[in-house]
Design a protein around this nucleic acid. Structure first.
Lengths: 203, 203
DNA sequence: GCGAAGCTAGCACAGGTGTGATAGGAGTGA
DNA sequence: TCACTCCTATCACACCTGTGCTAGCTTCGC
């Protein structure tokens, strides 16, 4: 009975993640990943011919997971936005892309490690930029949704506010990841809440 | 005639930077740095016994440079704040820690590369956290200065606003570093200006 | 039973790595 | 001239790396 290739590749990506989290990207050698997955290098290389292929797949998996989660969250948003407090709904939506639980924290750590390691690798760079576009788009729709609901203060520049919100989100992500005393979910929510409410003030 | 050790160490740190910018941290091997500096590995290791020592020194140099610049900027701030537009003065101050010219862009790139690469190295982690504390402190004094000048809106939480400003700053840094179309100095200044002015609005 | 496909393990090669150790050269002071 | 310090270059060692290659092992269809 042939093995499920997709599943095996996912398992290997998982092994890559574990190593990256524990020892950083440079430690994710073919041999290391094989050891982590309990296989031989030959087996690993049956599913990933080259190391770059393996690492790129592992990075892509991070982005895919996040995208799937945001997709689900976006569907939930369009339902809620008409009903309850739109600010709270916006905060909840934005929190989807922040590393506020163990799963997303892991993803963000791996993503960050790859991001910095891939500064020189154009392929990894492209994957990251695709993910960035997603977050940026989220900020844009968030701002324009608020505008559509009449919750944007007079005299505000939508593009500038989207850019500002985007920067705030990425900064919060960074702090959750790296700060010695990272802000918890409540603190992050408070900052987002303050920010979205500020957007309603007239300039 | 004995050589100036400090200068030679600075030259080697420079070589490390060039390699890190060009090919990433993993390429900064002892042999690579020696080649870049036009020396032999033996010479390099006369000034840095071990590779970790070399890399840590190079990382520390980034932080030192940034600190020196902010110190100078802080002195300039206290003069200006009483005179012209305090918002503009605040924007100028905050811009000091953003990579808006070639020199600071280089520093930020190197800093970022080390940061991510050093996720697992506690020593590099500590150096980075020291630098973070500096930026955080800058945000705090900036917010409390505005408060002292009566430029903070009613009902604002100083700690939360400092945290928010800090996240915004780091997010902007990230975008200048990594975005496919990074925001220029004017765009960054516009965002900061908008943000500081928002702080003056009543909640 | 018999092939064949799918998968695994392992070897081999040519490189690169950090670092210990040592020899040589250049300049200085006695 | 001698000795001495400072600096440089080089070799050696053990280890790790990516990857090409091949032999063997299961497990299937016939």
């Amino acid at each position: 009975m042939p093995i499920d290739h997709d599943q095996r590749r996912a398992e290997l990506a998982d092994a890559v993640w574990r190593i990256v989290l524990r020892e950083g990207v440079p430690a994710a050698s073919v041999r290391g990943v094989a050891r982590e997955a309990g296989l031989s290098t030959g087996s690993v290389r049956y599913f990933f011919t080259t190391q770059d292929e393996l690492l790129r797949f592992a990075m892509r998996e991070v982005v895919s997971r996040a995208e799937r989660r945001v997709q689900a969250g976006a569907g939930w948003r369009t339902r809620e936005v008409g009903e309850g407090d739109p600010i709270a709904a916006g905060v909840d939506l934005l929190k989807q892309v922040l590393p506020l639980d163990a799963e997303r924290l892991t993803e963000a750590r791996v993503w960050f490690a790859f991001t910095a390691h891939g500064t020189t690798d154009p392929d990894v760079r492209r994957i990251r930029q695709e993910a960035d576009e997603g977050v940026k788009g989220l900020c844009r729709t968030c701002v324009s949704d608020l505008d559509g609901l009449g919750l944007l203060g007079a005299g505000r520049d939508l593009a500038l506010e989207a850019e500002r919100l985007w920067a705030l989100l990425d900064g919060l992500t960074l702090h959750v990841l790296l700060a010695p005393e990272p802000p918890g979910p409540d603190a992050v929510a408070a900052v987002l809440d303050r920010h979205l409410r500020d957007l309603g003030l007239n300039t």
